[in-house]
Nucleic acid binder design. Sequence first.
DNA 1: AACATTTATCGTATATTTACGATATATATA
DNA 2: TATATATATCGTAAATATACGATAAATGTT
Lengths: 106, 106
Amino acid sequence: MTNEIKEKLAKNKSLSLTERERFIAMFKAMGNPIRYEMMEHMLKYPGCNTANIVDHLPIAQATVSQHLKVLKEAELVIGEIEGPATCYCLIDENVKWFKETVQKIF
Amino acid sequence: MTNEIKEKLAKNKSLSLTERERFIAMFKAMGNPIRYEMMEHMLKYPGCNTANIVDHLPIAQATVSQHLKVLKEAELVIGEIEGPATCYCLIDENVKWFKETVQKIF
DNA sequence: AACATTTATCGTATATTTACGATATATATA
DNA sequence: TATATATATCGTAAATATACGATAAATGTT
């Protein structure tokens, strides 16, 4: 999708551009089997670190890190540095917002 | 993502494989600005036809048709042939299931 | 039957995503 | 300070997604 098209779409919406984009980014982020699995894993094991997640998944550490970045950029997840490791959690407030918005929109 | 990886993931889930895949496909389908817009449009104008949707969007008819196919494959939308046109609606039952599943999972 | 209208599909170019190994960065420990 | 450990980033190859024009298919109309 070109920027031109994105600009054309960014007019007259019920959500503000920022919220709308974030909402769509959340859908996109969770619309991948690996990232969906990561979300479930963090739900089950809040505060798990990257190594835990890597062990749980059939892909390389570098790829896990890339997927984590997508989830972070969608503001679904936050990583807190704890010593040499990073602990990951869902951002409960934003997951709640997503759930509420899903209910509200559809 | 390779098929090998998809197979590795398809084990020991809370949702059945079919439901899990459908749930993720729904996220993916709605995780695109054009398709999200289409969903909102159909919500607002149930039974609108392809021409309506094309008029509402800044992309070619062929591309709209492709996006509609993705939404249909995710079982979010159904098209009913009505004369030479096709009328599109959200599949309320499945949207409801999606909403319920979002509440249940997260 | 011929034609007009509407939508889907085909072929294809380009952009984006996904995956990996290699390497950089950052912190804890010896 | 040197080393080990954990995670992020870089470069890149391959797969997938997105967009388009051209054209096929399906239906209504003359």
